[in-house]
Design a protein around this nucleic acid. Structure first.
Lengths: 247, 247
DNA sequence: GCAATAGTCTTCGTATACGATTTCGTACTC
DNA sequence: GAGTACGAAATCGTATACGAAGACTATTGC
């Protein structure tokens, strides 16, 4: 379907080596619509457009040197993907950080990512495990002088290695969408709950052990799912104790 | 109060989409874009546009009494949903029945529907269970003079009761999308594998028992997932006695 | 001084128009 | 007779234009 492959990337340690499946079929064909989609998506994911940012069609069109029509299409696609919220006769804004939304997204991701990881597991070779372990080592290092943003990026790299082999493209797409949604809110959970970062690294190692030992798909799925929902729980516990709760 | 809508006396050709699996956001304001989206989606889901059908923008626009621009947007949204396939400079076609695609969709659905059902379970009251049981009774009846189409519709109704209470709208949305994709290929699995229908009815009852007894979420999820993947397996076993995995 | 209302201004929604690309048919040549 | 090349028709892609709806502001009345 859609989903231009990158977006998940920015990976320093994992240059998407394993498979040449990477769709770079942009054969001199880049429709304006496509351009607009990619451009806006990139800006959302990289944080240039932060949540709540008002996406004015005419302005974006001008920035990109196109008319509003392709931009509208792009926005529509992003809306369907959940990256943008659209209100009739009012306009589009970058989808928000609403804690409720965060909860939904994390829960959904826990499920689809768990499944994707379990489905990938049999296809993950020793080389992949080694790469993942290297990333995890970096994460552990990163714990010293804790940098939430860097940590989050590494976290993404780590999990990418685990689920990218998923043979079911639909599920993989859902995982990507979930990650993108999270990426749009740059404030990672780890910023709020640094303690969770430590546990996270340990759980990563446990996950790798399971994969190495060719554990049951069920077991891997459950572990991957719990790994994520534990992060969610940590966030919830924190936010309840702390300031903003609201709904 | 608004809605003077002169000149276009012939419009509003779409009176409340014929009960697709997804909710109809029919506020009293229906932009042309919405109309087009609902209309095309309805036609795909109800089979007027069968898989492979070529969706010509101009023709649809004329049928609906609008211009092509709103139709384009609608098509884009349907594309993001996976109901249509779009090729640059060529056009859109209703997404196909490709067995591989079927496999992917069913697998994905088994996962998200399983999760949705498990999350819904605690919110399902005796009244709901009773309704579901009534539907299942109809299905059992339906086994006598087997009618695959009717059976499939009842099957959808049954599962809808089980997952519609899902508190996570994202997951619920994914379930709807999965069902819609399946709906677009009118040939239900049960047409090919009537025997599966019998098992299915029994599994439904088992599922209801689990929900009634407030079984563990894990147990319910696994049961719901297996229920669906068993249907998939039945299809696979039937359709090709040879090439199992089909890449 | 505050609130309600009217007017303006921004921005969206859709129609129409035209250029670009693909596809299909036909004729011509080997 | 078959294959290729040229051309026409169909269809998509995008720009521009105009009407409509919501938001913002200023003015007026209490």
């Amino acid at each position: 379907m859609n989903d231009t492959a990158p977006a998940l990337g920015t990976n320093t340690a994992t240059p998407a080596a394993p498979r040449a499946v990477s769709p770079a079929p942009v054969t001199h064909t880049a429709s304006k619509s496509e351009q607009a989609y990619a451009a806006v998506k990139a800006r959302i994911v990289d944080g240039s457009y932060s949540p709540g940012y008002r996406l004015v069609l005419a302005k974006i069109a001008e920035d990109l040197g196109v008319s509003v029509v392709p931009v509208r299409e792009a926005i529509r696609r992003l809306e369907a993907e959940g990256l943008v919220k659209f209100e009739r006769n009012v306009g589009a804004t970058v989808a928000g950080i609403d804690p409720t939304e965060y909860l939904y997204t994390m829960q959904t991701l826990s499920i689809v990512e768990g499944a994707a990881t379990a489905l990938s597991a049999p296809l993950i070779g020793p080389a992949d495990v080694a790469r993942a372990r290297a990333v995890n080592a970096e994460m552990r290092e990163c714990l010293e002088h804790f940098d939430p943003v860097r940590f989050t990026r590494l976290n993404q790299d780590f999990h990418s290695i685990l689920f990218e082999h998923c043979p079911n493209p639909h599920i993989l797409d859902l995982v990507h969408r979930g990650w993108n949604r999270l990426a749009s809110l740059r404030s990672s959970t780890f910023r709020f709950v640094p303690r969770r970062a430590h546990e996270s690294v340990d759980e990563h190692e446990a996950l790798l052990r399971l994969i190495e030992s060719a554990a049951d798909a069920d077991v891997i799925e459950k572990a991957a799912r719990l790994h994520r929902s534990a992060t969610l729980d940590a966030y919830l516990a924190q936010s309840n104790a702390g300031s903003v709760s609201a709904r």
